[in-house]
Design a protein around this nucleic acid. Structure first.
Length: 343
DNA sequence: TAGTCGTGGGG
DNA sequence: TCCCCAAGACT
């Protein structure tokens, strides 16, 4: 039933035109919490630049992040790079076919290990993502994400993939989840499961599984500095771990309780970078929302006395050379602010 | 285990 | 404009 549905409704996606486990793995990494349409151009660009495991292993993280720029969740890129290097240097460049070995690689968790082993190697493993858990929760009439219910869902899926063709079954469930059994919209009449689906029988399929109520997120206010010296501006690289790890940015500081941005910038930039600056007028303000906080960023035009460099995580670059570095979306909004003023 | 970690599309 | 959501992993 489900395979018949898949043969009629299968999406034609770039990573479905290959059997290369490296490419299938890359697609799974990019698709984490990210929509298919968003991923496609990033996937194509990455594969064009890095068609093989070796090409990734020999590349440096800055250039990989430049390809990843704008896709978000940047630790995925770094973890993938680490895993690929691990394979190149410690596994003779061959992706492990034992799921335990594969799952021990950085950034490879329960879902991706099952997905790659089943899709690329036809192994009998489940690949429980948001789609699969939602669909089966509805089939079983499960509302709460208790550990008992998660086991029931896993058992149901395990039985399903054991009936044959785990690769197609796993991908079919993903397409069902994105087409007919979405979080806030269902087309039950088109679903191969609907005769036995408890959520469908209840008449309220959307109430399965129960939604988790979102918590309110804080708003931060940040002052950023466009520090110029001649034709160059000052940028700095964020630490590899944590938020936007490894990306470049304009120097900035959070305003905690009514501090005066001009004063704080002058002190902090001297402190952190040895920069002696004159803070000029405000260039504008941008808003940006992350998963767990919002921020308002005030941008100030600043002039530096000279161009000191104390670390390799600091650079003076011309405005036209900024595109060689990976920046977060918020920084691009700041750059746009500057361009608009110069027009 | 609950927080952390981005961004863009669509209602 | 705001809010939910989209093929999770790590700590």
């Amino acid at each position: 039933m489900i395979l018949q549905w898949y043969s009629l409704n299968k999406r034609d996606l770039p990573w479905r035109r290959t059997s290369d486990p490296y490419k299938i793995w890359l697609s799974e990494v990019m698709l984490q919490q990210t929509q298919v349409e968003t991923v496609i151009p990033y996937y194509e660009k990455w594969i064009n630049h890095y068609p093989t495991i070796k090409s990734v292993a020999l590349e440096n993280i800055d250039n990989l992040l430049k390809i990843w720029e704008g896709l978000g969740y940047y630790s995925r890129c770094r973890n993938f790079h680490e895993a690929i290097k691990d394979i190149f240097y410690n596994h003779k460049g061959v992706i492990p076919k034992q799921i335990e070995d594969f799952k021990s690689l950085k950034g490879v968790g329960v879902y991706i290990s099952g997905a790659v082993m089943s899709i690329a190697f036809d192994q009998t493993h489940i690949a429980v993502d948001g789609n699969q858990s939602r669909i089966i929760a509805r089939v079983l009439g499960v509302k709460n994400q208790t550990s008992r219910n998660l086991k029931r869902i896993n058992n149901y899926l395990t039985k399903l993939v054991k009936e044959g063709n785990p690769s197609e079954i796993n991908q079919a469930l993903m397409d069902m989840g994105s087409n007919i059994c979405k979080s806030n919209k269902v087309i039950c009449v088109d679903c191969p499961f609907h005769f036995s689906c408890k959520a469908f029988q209840s008449g309220h399929p959307l109430s399965y599984p129960k939604k988790i109520l979102p918590k309110t997120i804080p708003t931060k206010t940040i002052a950023a500095a466009l520090v110029s010296h001649g034709d160059n501006i000052f940028i700095t690289k964020r630490p590899l771990k944590g938020l936007l790890g490894g990306l470049w940015e304009l120097p900035n500081i959070e305003l905690v309780n009514g501090e005066i941005p001009e004063d704080l910038l002058k002190i902090k930039l001297a402190d952190q970078f040895g920069l002696t600056i004159k803070v000029g007028h405000k260039l504008g303000m941008i808003n940006h929302t992350f998963t767990h906080f919002k921020m308002n960023v005030l941008l100030y035009n600043c002039q530096a006395k000279d161009q000191p460099l104390s670390k390799n995580t600091e650079k003076w670059v011309s405005f036209s050379d900024l595109n060689q570095y990976a920046f977060s979306k918020a920084n691009h909004k700041l750059f746009k602010l500057v361009e608009l003023r110069n027009d």
